[in-house]
Amino acid sequence: MAATGKVLVVIGLFLLPVLTYGDTCLAPHVKSQTYSTPEAIVSTETVLIVEFTVTCKNGLKNINLYADIGGRTLPATKTSEANKYQISITDEHKKLPSGSYNLRIFDEEGFAALRKAQRSGESTDSLKPLFTITMSHPGIWSGPMVQSEFVAAMSAIVVWWLAYTARSKLLA
């Protein structure tokens, strides 16, 4: 009887980390803020940044999260504040056009299933994320059609021409 008790204690000690590590965030409440590059004049790439706070119903904190955006997987970076994360996406302006982007956020268990589906060539659309954040990117502004320096130069030429023709009329 004593040996059985010791075996159960040893088994319990091995299962305890597995049971505590495998917690899943229940009923996540998400608050998010998004940012996207507004203009192409000062940047060479479009940047999309999503910052979000996750509060789990079961009080789970500091979980590892991963994002899937259009088949591209990225880890969510934990910030210094508890349960606050950030995801940054950068690419060429042409590859991130204006529109709405859905960021599917997975925990470690969901991310493992996502990677397994990607490796086997299966569709990942059927996988249920922990939650989804929708980001609207209005596109980038490439600047005015005509540069202000050109308008100033043309205005100066027109003023000079008007003054020259008026002077020619006065002298004639």
Rank of each mutant, 00 (worst) to 15 (best):
M135P: 04
P129G: 10
T124S: 07
F150T: 07
E149C: 01
M145Y: 14
P129S: 03
S126N: 08
D125P: 02
I133L: 08
V146I: 15
M154Q: 04
A156M: 00
L130C: 04
V151T: 14
S148W: 08
A153F: 02
S123D: 12
K116P: 01
Q118R: 05
I133M: 06
E122R: 04
V146W: 03
R119P: 00
A156G: 04
R115T: 01
M154S: 06
H137Q: 12
S142M: 11
R119N: 07
L130Y: 01
G121Q: 03
Q147H: 10
E149F: 06
I140N: 15
S142N: 15
M145F: 11
W141F: 15
H137E: 07
G143P: 08
W141S: 14
S142R: 12
G143S: 07
S120Q: 10
S142H: 11
G139L: 12
E149D: 09
L130Q: 03
S136V: 11
Q118L: 07
V151S: 12
G143M: 09
P138K: 12
S123A: 07
I133S: 11
S148I: 02
L127A: 08
S142D: 13
W141Y: 15
E149Y: 06
V151R: 13
P144D: 08
E122D: 07
S123I: 06
T134C: 11
L127F: 11
M154W: 05
M145I: 09
A156Y: 00
Q118D: 01
A117Q: 02
P144C: 11
A117E: 00
F131R: 10
D125W: 05
T132F: 01
R119S: 09
P129D: 09
